[in-house]
Amino acid sequence: MSLFERIGGAPAMDAAVNIFYRKVLADERISHFFETVDMERQAAKQKAFLTMVLGGPNHYSGLDMRKAHAGMNLSQVHFDAVLEHLAATLSQLGVVAEDIAQIAAVAESVKADVLNQ
């Protein structure tokens, strides 16, 4: 059983997005990137992202990640901020530290694409 299924599958992603997106928007380091985006569309993307890192069914590709973040001038600080919120969200959802570390590693794997390296 994947972590995605253990957490509760697709329906649980709604709760996860509400927690995660709120943390992201409240963080001054990164909130300005989300000033003008459509909230519904952004939430859908974050749901897909969370599904991907939790090992749920997804069609997330590095190319999408690269295209979506191109030209945003993102740095390590921004990436770390998102990772922090991801870990805090998972912990709020009752995911144990060991699993969170494993998920963080999956998220780290897209870093080069996100930071356009």
């Binding site: 697709a10 859908a44 749901k47 897909a48 749920g56 069914p57 997804n58 997330y60």
Partner: peptide, 26 residues
């Protein structure tokens, strides 16, 4: 979109017919 019932990229509107619950989950 994701092809997995998550991202809602492929939404269509059913006017008539049976909708399986999984197609509206979330």
């Amino acid at each position: 979109g994701c092809g997995a019932g998550v991202c809602q990229g492929c939404l269509v509107q059913v006017l008539e017919g049976t909708i399986p619950p999984r197609a509206q989950e979330g």
